[in-house]
Design a binder for these strands. Structure first.
Lengths: 142, 142
DNA sequence: ATTATAATTGGAATAATTCTTGATTGCGAC
DNA sequence: GTCGCAATCAAGAATTATTCCAATTATAAT
């Protein structure tokens, strides 16, 4: 089998298939960018970056790839207000802190042993499928 | 039932001004609808409802009113994924549970004594201005 | 190799929201 | 009251992120 990228040994190797999703060249490159850019890029950010390697890729394809990756649980889609969706390869349960001065988005982990659903008055019979926590604020410069 | 308004006894009385915002007729009616419809209506939902009383109101005005009310901390704007924004007059710190089968949105309160920021590993110096918690899932029919 | 299926492309379409402009209103000073 | 000013409103155009669609290309199956 011919290695796809012997000529780029430092790069992340991405398998042919991840959790049942066929990893086409476009999906590979989109996914690679998310692995590298950990700053929660938008579809358009990804599009601009990916064009270095796939000059003919279309924005629609980037959207398709991102959706496929999200659907298969390989990446997460994150929304802030009604801004463009952002994407992130961190699958662990975590929240996001949106720094209003810099615009930077930080991943926020729970302190160990915390189960959010235990702290809320949920309606009886509620089965939680997904949780989203977003904090907005500033970083005091210390 | 305590009548607050001699003309329309069942209706909510809305003051001339709330937290520095002049309550024009349009803003009053928009606000009244939010008080009555506790199901997190969208701007368009509000628009359709408010036309009963103000047939000439425009959608742009509804957006303006909602924004003014949000800006003055009189109502809250709530976003789910990238759907239309929804609006809610419940100002207490609370989250939202989005029932995926019915589409209904339930307000979720914290159990008493819970302070979310205590449970998270925030970046040093983070000053939280706003928190948003969204849960998605189903209600087991019991 | 042929056929079938899935993915990609580019452009058009959509939908929520914002912007623009001109008209209207409310309100204080006179 | 009315004059002037600022705020608000209305209507429609513009914007923007995203989705849809039809045609092409790539991959897989037979």
């Amino acid at each position: 089998m011919v290695s796809k990228n012997t000529e780029h040994p430092e790069e992340i190797e991405i398998p042919e298939e991840i959790s049942g999703l066929r990893m086409t060249r476009q999906r590979q490159e989109v996914y690679r960018i998310l692995q590298q850019e950990r700053n929660h890029p938008t579809a358009n950010d990804v599009f601009m970056r990916v064009k270095d390697r796939l000059p003919n890729i279309s924005l629609a394809t980037v959207y398709n790839c991102l959706e496929a990756l999200v659907q298969h649980g390989i990446i997460r889609q994150v929304n802030f207000e009604r801004e463009s969706s952002r994407y992130c390869p961190n699958l662990s349960e975590h929240g996001h802190f949106h720094d209003q001065t810099t615009g930077v988005i930080h991943d926020i982990d729970f302190k160990p042993g915390i189960r959010l659903a235990d702290l809320l008055n949920l309606p009886p019979g509620a089965v939680i499928e997904d949780v989203e926590i977003t904090l907005r604020g500033k970083l005091a410069n210390i």
